[in-house]
C-alpha cells in the first residue's frame, strides 16, 4: 500500500492505495465520484477523461499513485445543477447526448479542446475530440454543442443554474 495525497475538485484527500490502482477506480470506488465512467480498458473510448492539473487525461491510463501531489478535476468539479459550465449547458441544449454514458468524459475533453483552441472550426472540433467515442448521437450535435460553448465562453456569459434554464413551473 502506498499513501497518496490528491486534490480532487478542490478538496484534499489522503488515502492508502494499492500501487496498481487506476486513477479511474480511485475516483469511482474510493471517492464515490461515479460521474467518471469506464468504457473500454484500452484507453480507446475516453469515457473516463478527467483533468489532471487542467490537462485532459484518460484516467484508466493513470495510476492513482501517479496523480499524487496533483490536482484532479472530474465532471462533478466542472459544474453542478446550481451553476452549469457553458459546455454542460450546451451539451444539454444542443442535444449532444443520448444515453449520456460518454457525456462526462466528452465534456471534459471538449473543455480541454477549447483551452488549447478557443475558437475551433468544425474540422478542428472533430479531430480534437476523436479520442472520445460516442455510439448514440452520430457526433453532429456534439460539434454543435462545442461551437455553442465556445461562443458563450468567448462572450464570457455567466454560468446559469438548471432552475433558470427550465420552463417556468417545472419541478
Amino acid at each position: 500500500m502506498e499513501t497518496v495525497n490528491i486534490e480532487v475538485n478542490g478538496r484534499s484527500y489522503s488515502n492508502e492505495v494499492e500501487p496498481r490502482l487506476l486513477l479511474v477506480h480511485y475516483l469511482r470506488d474510493t471517492l464515490g465520484l461515479t460521474g467518471t465512467h469506464v468504457g473500454c480498458d484500452t484507453s480507446s473510448c475516453g469515457a473516463c477523461t478527467v483533468l489532471l492539473d487542467g490537462i485532459s487525461v484518460k484516467s484508466c491510463t493513470v495510476f492513482a499513485a501517479q496523480a499524487g501531489g496533483h490536482a484532479v478535476t472530474t465532471i462533478e468539479g466542472i459544474g453542478n445543477s446550481g451553476a452549469l459550465h457553458p459546455m454542460q449547458e450546451a451539451f444539454w441544449a444542443k442535444h449532444g447526448l443520448q444515453c449520456g454514458f460518454c457525456t462526462p468524459g466528452m465534456i471534459v475533453s471538449c473543455i480541454d479542446l477549447l483551452r488549447r483552441n478557443p475558437d475551433p472550426s468544425d474540422a478542428e472540433i472533430r479531430a480534437g475530440i476523436e479520442g472520445n467515442l460516442c455510439r448514440c448521437t452520430g457526433y453532429e450535435n456534439i460539434v454543435r454543442a462545442v461551437r455553442a460553448a465556445a461562443a458563450a465562453m468567448k462572450a464570457d456569459e455567466p454560468r446559469r443554474s438548471v432552475a433558470e434554464l427550465l420552463p417556468v413551473g417545472a419541478s
Binding site: R28, L84, W92, P104
Partner: peptide
C-alpha cells in the same frame, strides 16, 4: 423539448448500474 434528464447526464449525477453501491 430538451431532455428532462439532461442536467443529470451533463453533471455526471445520474447513476448507471455500475455506479450503484
Amino acid at each position: 423539448l430538451d431532455r428532462v434528464e439532461g442536467p443529470g447526464k451533463v453533471t455526471g449525477r445520474i447513476a448507471y448500474t455500475a455506479d450503484n453501491d
